[in-house]
């Protein structure tokens, strides 16, 4: 049977996905091509993953014979969280096609794509849902299983890609965050220095007012002391005058 991408067909494109089993069946079937599948993944991620599934990520696997596509897709998905683009590490699907091996008791290939349209035999790009830990750059594939980290053993292209991802995290995450932090401190410093200037002005006004009031109080106290002394002197004079008057009256 012949398969067509329903999205491509809807856009008026041929959307031919090639032959599918059963090959003897001449009818048509529909699926989705890898480009529209990536579009669909982008739309899903744009909407955001459900909060209940924080560990879900996606692996975009590119056929190792399609270096051109790997570069294109890597560039496109470089800074998208939850997604990692890798080259297909499998070599020729030996276990899947070893028809001469009978009674193979080894368990099935866990990397088998869940749907036929994501099968690497038919399309050069596959999208696989995985646990998010495997997507993290900080946890290279093979870590913890006795294999050397990707950063040391991977080919230059992949190491370069890892470096780009790390650099992009710094330039698009850490540095802008640092700049924003600097701006926040700058605004806080300006605000605090403005308050400080205001507080200094208030304090100066208060000190001047207080000094003026102290001066007036001192002057009042001095005047009152002088008035009390004058009053005492007047009373003494009055008493003396009364004594003199009494004396004169007596004479």
């Amino acid at each position: 049977m012949r398969a067509f991408c329903a999205w491509c067909v809807a856009e008026g494109k041929p959307g031919d996905l090639g032959e599918r089993e059963p090959l003897a069946d001449p009818s048509e079937t529909h699926g989705i091509c890898w480009r529209h599948r990536l579009d669909s993944l982008a739309a899903v991620l744009k909407e955001g993953l459900p909060d209940a599934e924080p560990s879900i990520g996606f692996l975009i696997v590119v056929a190792r014979t399609r270096q051109d596509l790997f570069e294109e897709v890597s560039e496109q998905w470089l800074s998208v969280p939850h997604v990692r683009v890798v080259l297909d590490r499998r070599h020729g699907e030996r276990r899947a096609h070893r028809a001469d091996v009978h009674g193979d008791r080894r368990r099935a290939d866990r990397r088998t794509a869940p749907v036929v349209f994501d099968d690497g035999r038919h399309q050069p790009v596959m999208v696989l849902p995985i646990k998010r830990a495997a997507v993290a750059v900080e946890e290279p594939v093979g870590a913890g299983r006795g294999e050397a980290p990707v950063a040391e053993t991977a080919p230059p292209r992949e190491r370069f890609r890892e470096w780009i991802v790390a650099s992009r995290a710094i330039t698009q995450g850490t540095v802008p965050s640092m700049l924003a932090e600097r701006d926040r401190w700058s605004a806080r410093a300006a605000e605090a220095e403005s308050q400080l200037s205001q507080a200094r002005g208030d304090l100066e006004d208060l000190a001047l007012t207080l000094a003026g009031l102290h001066g007036r109080n001192d002057r009042l106290t001095r005047q009152q002391t002088e008035a009390a002394q004058a009053l005492a002197a007047a009373l003494r004079h009055m008493k003396r005058a009364m004594d003199l008057t009494n004396l004169a009256q007596g004479e």
């Binding site: 600097r182 605090a192 400080l196």
Partner: peptide, 27 residues
């Protein structure tokens, strides 16, 4: 330079805030 500038701004902001607190208490 950016990190130094951020640290200097942080120091200025915290010093000014401390001084504002001190002056507010004095006031």
């Amino acid at each position: 330079g950016l990190l130094d500038e951020r640290d200097e701004l942080m120091r200025r902001a915290l010093n000014a805030e401390d001084e504002v607190t001190r002056l507010t208490e004095r006031a």
